[in-house]
Design a binder for these strands. Structure first.
Lengths: 258, 258
DNA sequence: TCGCAGGAGTTAACAGTGTTTGCTTACGGC
DNA sequence: GCCGTAAGCAAACACTGTTAACTCCTGCGA
């Protein structure tokens, strides 16, 4: 987002310009479509010329990547806010009475994900659509790091869900070893992020959780990308029944929010 | 694909040129990436110049749409072939003994879908990735019609699955009316395609089936688009456990194929 | 306070894109 | 065999991302 503690006036002005470039680019991308966010259009909007932008971004693609990273971060913030608002929902909505907080948090985050996608389809495409040409998911890519921060919101809730409300799963031995070893590595990275509690989650539970995430992604992506048009005109109610089914897989009872 | 019964020599030559343009464009798109399939590059490859292509396609975007439609049709043909090969699988693979044919057909088709996506990632992007700018899914769009032909392979198997092996579902009344009405319309269109048998499928079963399709799409799309890289390096084994879970939802027992 | 290094921004240009216009050429149907 | 029309081309237009060379200004160090 913004750099930390710019020392001199020069750096401050520079950071402000970087932010303005990204803001204008995002506005063009959202309002006029992805192909409208050309360097010349962005520069024109800012009262300068295209080559000047190269003082701030080494290429158009790098600017694009910065927009992806920022969108990831905004989405992560929205999800975190929804999670943190779950307590309020739990306190005010009558039918929520007695629900475990972590369950309400998961439902709120899932709904916030869909709502964000519906409200910001262009940004959703930007982030979750076809990646740029054969994207080499470099670990030092800022967009990749931002993607991890986004995913952490869901996984953190899930780790807590398992700690508080474990659901019955098959024994780990039932998994093919080729999958088990991958999930073990993934679980190790979760321990680094969320502490020892993550180490207690069985691989089969992670398997179920990943499937839930795939389901959530698939549903929202097909909706935004118009791949559900062949059968549904409004995917909203279908999202409800899908959340309910998803809750059954996770051993929790789904209760509609809002 | 190819026109039906070209009368004169002129039309025959023309159809051959159209096919060559699409073949060259697809080859460039697959081998050099989507942005390499420019009109000039295609024309150069064919020993002609870019404006000449306008005799065959009114715009670059129309050529693109034709490629989408063709890819849909090729995929549909692959799925149909996998379905028709299920009898052979049933006869030769020992552990398949006693399985209902329709179940093997569904599994074969699902696996063929993933295998095709893995073998043709660029074509998968072409068809299932971010659609062209705010795609207006016109009913007269050939790509849309091809998409319906593709979907029909899965839905036909599903209608037959229900007729032969219905699984327990919740009563239709449990669905929110906003969803039920949409599913009713969709079921009516299925009756037009597959006959009266489709009319007997409960709306709740269609709800389950759609969710299965969303799961399948989400899994394959996330794999091709590299959105599973954060947790898996090879999505193959995860696809297996997902197919098993998917089978449970449909009340069938999953048996690995090949 | 002053001088200057270096950052910011410009113009001009290049190679590429999709697309249109006007032209020539060649060939299939009458 | 002629003719009309389809096929294809060269040139041009308005774009795109990107580079090079240049000017100007300004914030910083002495």
């Amino acid at each position: 987002m913004s750099t930390d503690a710019p020392v001199g006036r020069r750096e401050r002005l520079r950071a402000a310009t970087v932010d303005e470039i990204k803001a204008v680019a995002l506005r063009l991308l959202v309002e006029e479509g992805p192909e409208a966010a050309t360097l010349r259009a962005i520069a024109r909007e800012m009262g300068m010329t295209a080559p000047g932008l190269y003082r701030y971004f080494p290429s158009h693609e790098d600017l694009h990547k910065a927009l992806v990273a920022d969108s990831y971060d905004r989405l992560a913030a929205v999800l975190a806010a929804a999670r943190d608002g779950a307590g309020q929902v739990l306190a005010t909505e009558a039918r929520m009475a007695g629900k475990p907080l972590v369950v309400v948090q998961l439902v709120c985050a899932a709904k916030a994900f869909r709502d964000w996608a519906a409200a910001h389809p262009q940004e959703f495409r930007l982030v979750f659509g076809t990646p740029v040409p054969s994207v080499t998911h470099n670990l030092d890519d800022p967009a990749h790091a931002a993607g991890m921060r986004f995913g952490a919101v869901f996984t953190e809730i899930f780790v807590r869900l398992w700690a508080e409300l474990p659901f019955p799963v098959a024994p780990e031995e039932s998994l093919p070893e080729a999958l088990a070893s991958q999930l073990r590595d993934y679980r190790t990275s979760l321990v680094d992020l969320f502490g020892e509690a993550a180490g207690d989650v069985p691989l089969t539970a992670i398997d179920v959780f990943l499937r839930a995430w795939v389901q959530l992604y698939g549903l929202v992506a097909m909706d935004v990308f118009n791949h559900l048009h062949f059968c549904l005109t409004d995917a909203g109610p279908f999202f409800e029944t899908s959340l309910a089914a998803l809750g059954r897989d996770l051993g929790i009872e789904y209760v509609p929010v809002h």
